[in-house]
Design a protein around this nucleic acid. Structure first.
Lengths: 342, 342
DNA sequence: GGGGTGATCAAAAACGTTTTTGGCTTGGGA
DNA sequence: TCCCAAGCCAAAAACGTTTTTGATCACCCC
């Protein structure tokens, strides 16, 4: 009964108070001033539920976090930073982040979760992360006419709003660096094949190789699940091949740490016998031994970009086709790579 | 206009449909069956906003993530797992997690955020993380009569619901282990002093020392901000003292990695010249060199416990005073510690 | 002076539920 | 036969906004 109290207190009608507070232009500046002042003094806050019901919008942005594939438990810590960035932007605009999670990777359950989120009217817009090569979630969102932006691209006929890092260029860069160091046997320890970023990374890797007229060996392009354990296992399987690779480009720093552990177990000196490059510039990469050569990208900043795009989309200030932000990735040279051994 | 359509379709009144769907017992089993079936067939979902307005509850649980103190940007990745656990539990019960974030550590702004969350009617319950020794947030929640559970304890006269890990025992355990290995000069690289867990860890550390009739040197109990960089810096400042510590107990694995880097720079061999114990058993700790001796606690599982407690609190099945879960911490011995040097 | 045009505000109708209140059966006990 | 309770359901009143519609008034121009 709050707005009616305020209205009574002011001697105005409910609608005038509402319109004053919401910045409509058919209420005089003087009245608006009077209303906002009194509202603040009285400590009036519009009830969000009522506001949602009345306006038909929820002022919430939804995201469904993917469960890590291996354990089915932990969430990729990258998302903390991403969501941090998103929230930083949407918070001042009065939006909140409604986060749900997939307990286990399961396509049917995933669809149901998104269904519920969208059709149930929980959120005004959607953030879709960890995009796949072909991603049914885009169709779901489109069908329900819910604005969305994806973090990571996908193969889609129709235009859509995306923010992504330049995976292809990044891995081309890293691979070229290793080629310049004299390596000729370079392995790619990639992420899960179904994700689009893995495709792009392979593309960059291949592009670098073919730039030197080198043929890629399919046996040296492996897919894992982004964890240390996976990097460790894949690297070990590569090291027993003859000839073995002398360099490894990894999809995450975590995988790189796993690979380094495997190399060390094989008695190889990191940075001389064998070279390893990671991805992500995790806070640890500068402090391990040897410090990890890796590729930096600004997850938090990307999150902010996503948040801004979402806001603009909601306000219809921009069309999905115009939200295309490709973050350049920079290589951070440290000590985990070096000239190819003789 | 959804429930009225369904009601019309069924030839029942709106209220009967609502009551049937919500499991009231004054509607016959047969009617309930008929309604639920038809609802599913027709694809009816109650509009959450309307439901909230009608029932006065939001079916959302709020959490405000603290910004990492150093960068003001990234979020501690531990929260990914914690929130993952929470969501896993509350999702099936129809609850969602409403996450907000503090852009920067700032007491006034924090209070405003919580104010808005609670008084604004955004959430039904609150999860309070990273508790401080004296924590004003509890009073805020109590004053607004919003159920809450804290992750981590605090000093409070009144009973409250908490889930925590046994920080004190953990650090007593770790310190005792080092004492058993012959170390007599053990430093504590702790987290920020304001957080209660830091107090508890120091208490455990001190208890272990006094168990051997040893005096603690205040100069060897340092506080940092949980990051690698901080661990690195603190450890370096300790190593230039004469005599220098021979062992370090660290508040996080990240700090331990930083400390290890500092030791290595000082030309010390980890596990023989100097011993380091971490906390958290991060996925990396098994793969670094040497593998890190650390303390494991199950963040995801704790999150599930928190979720369940929240649900029970909301249903009034339990009183805050009865939610006291202290997770035992287990030490994972690896190779970063060893007998004290002569 | 009359008709149109803005500017300002009031009244009332949505929005889609939940919850309260009370009415109508039916059956059993006195 | 009458009364009462229990079981089932309908009607209507909340819930607190936003938005639409329309009324009133002043003003200006012709």
């Amino acid at each position: 009964m709050s707005i009616v109290l305020l209205a009574k207190d002011l001697g105005l009608s409910i609608s005038t108070v509402s319109r004053a507070l919401n910045g409509y232009d058919d209420v005089s500046a003087a009245t608006r001033e009077r209303v906002t002042l009194r509202a603040k003094a009285i400590g009036y806050r519009p009830n969000p539920s009522a506001r949602r019901l009345g306006a038909g919008s929820t002022s919430a942005i939804g995201v469904i976090l993917p469960a890590a594939s291996s354990t089915g438990q932990a969430v990729d810590s990258m998302y903390s930073s991403l969501l941090g960035g998103v929230v930083t932007e949407i918070e001042p605009a009065g939006y909140h982040l409604l986060a749900s999670m997939q307990a286990k990777p399961d396509a049917a359950r995933e669809a149901a979760l998104y269904e519920n989120f969208i059709r149930g009217g929980w959120v005004d817009a959607l953030l879709i992360v960890r995009t796949r090569v072909h991603d049914a979630r885009l169709d779901l969102a489109r069908a329900a006419k819910v604005p969305f932006v994806t973090y990571g691209r996908t193969e889609s006929e129709q235009p859509y709003a995306w923010v992504d890092t330049d995976n292809e260029k990044a891995f081309q860069l890293a691979t070229t660096r290793l080629l310049d160091l004299g390596h000729r046997r370079i392995a790619l320890i990639n992420g899960p094949e179904e994700y689009y970023f893995a495709q792009l990374r392979r593309r960059g890797y291949l592009r670098a190789l073919s730039g030197r007229k080198l043929k890629a060996d399919p046996a040296w392009m492996l897919h894992g699940d982004l964890t240390e354990a996976s990097g460790h296992e894949l690297c070990r399987s590569l090291l027993i091949q003859r000839p073995a690779p002398t360099a490894f480009v990894c999809a995450t720093d975590a995988m790189a740490f796993g690979a380094i552990a495997a190399c060390r177990e094989a008695g190889l000196a990191i940075g001389s016998d064998v070279s390893v490059i990671g991805y992500g510039n995790s806070s640890l990469s500068a402090f391990c031994d040897p410090p990890l050569t890796t590729m930096e990208h600004q997850v938090f900043e990307n999150g902010r970009y996503v948040g801004r795009a979402l806001l603009q989309l909601l306000r219809k200030e921009i069309k999905p086709a115009d939200v295309h932000y490709l973050e350049p990735v920079v290589l951070v040279p440290r000590k985990s790579d070096g000239p190819a051994p003789r």
